[in-house]
């Protein structure tokens, strides 16, 4: 097919638009000057300052804990939901189940955050739990969001999977539970890893819902970043952003290489 100059330039423009801010952020993080328009020489001092910033470090640690816990729970729940949607056929309440699974994907975060907060407050009034808000309430909120995404990822893989493998194992007398762990899980493993990673990233990135359902003393990294960024451009955030971009790029690139090696 003839290469269209228009399409190629549109693609180039799109990538420039997507990557220019990220490239600038990386450049600024090594800028010795505080200003974005002045180059004060190459410097790593903002990284040193960042490493000494206890507020950021504590928040990062809490965020990683929340993300790991909620991603694991979201993966377990999302896998069950995917099995229900792909393998269970028709059952009463399927419409509602399907709707509940897909709705968090498009629900504005402010509504989700407010709704969960109001429920936690009502629950505390009635049964005395959760006592205040913090780690556990953020984990519950992030699990609900992550579960919706995990279901989408696992479900599409499960739908493509050859069911005859499972049927063969069952014909040979294996119980459904054993079939699931011995046959199904290994086959869909890459999608499980992808789903966990997606839920983990979403949790690590969420500021809106976390702001609703966190309490004093439970500040996640995005909340900390958000409140410092509102005051203006800060070189430490540039350094933090650069670290996040580099780590994410490495993980995604490795995952992608692993997947493409498997295919060939």
């Amino acid at each position: 097919m003839r290469r269209s100059v228009f399409l190629l330039s549109a693609l180039g423009f799109g990538y420039a638009f997507l990557y220019l801010p990220i490239a600038l952020l990386i450049a600024w993080s090594f800028n010795g000057a505080r200003l974005v328009n002045v180059w004060g020489g190459f410097s790593t001092k903002w990284y040193v300052e960042l490493a000494r910033n206890d507020a950021f470090l504590d928040a990062a640690f809490l965020s990683l804990k929340v993300a790991a816990t909620s991603a694991t729970a979201a993966l377990a729940l999302g896998t069950l939901a995917a099995v229900v949607l792909v393998r269970f056929g028709r059952f009463r309440g399927r419409m509602l189940f399907n709707g509940l699974i897909a709705a968090p994907l498009v629900m504005p975060e402010v509504i989700l955050g407010l709704a969960l907060l109001l429920m936690f407050v009502a629950l505390e009034q009635v049964i005395g739990w959760p006592d205040g808000r913090g780690f556990s309430t953020i984990v519950i909120a992030h699990t609900t969001i992550g579960m919706a995404y995990a279901t989408v990822v696992v479900r599409s893989r499960l739908a493509q999977m050859d069911e005859s493998l499972e049927e063969a194992a069952m014909d040979l007398g294996a119980k459904p539970m054993k079939v699931f762990f011995v046959i199904t899980i290994p086959v869909i493993a890459p999608s499980l890893a992808a789903a966990w990673l997606l839920a983990f990233t979403l949790s690590l990135d969420d500021v809106v819902v976390a702001q609703f359902v966190s309490g004093p003393g439970a500040t996640t990294l995005p909340i900390e970043v958000f409140s410092s960024v509102r005051l203006g451009v800060s070189p430490q955030v540039n350094a933090l952003g650069t670290i996040i971009v580099v780590v994410v790029a490495c993980i995604i690139f490795t995952a992608w290489r692993l997947m493409s090696v498997k295919k060939t």
Partner: peptide
């Protein structure tokens, strides 16, 4: 996959 917040923040600069 990289932080949404930080990408928006880059536009401030």
């Amino acid at each position: 996959w990289t932080s949404f917040l930080i990408r928006v923040y880059a536009w401030m600069g």
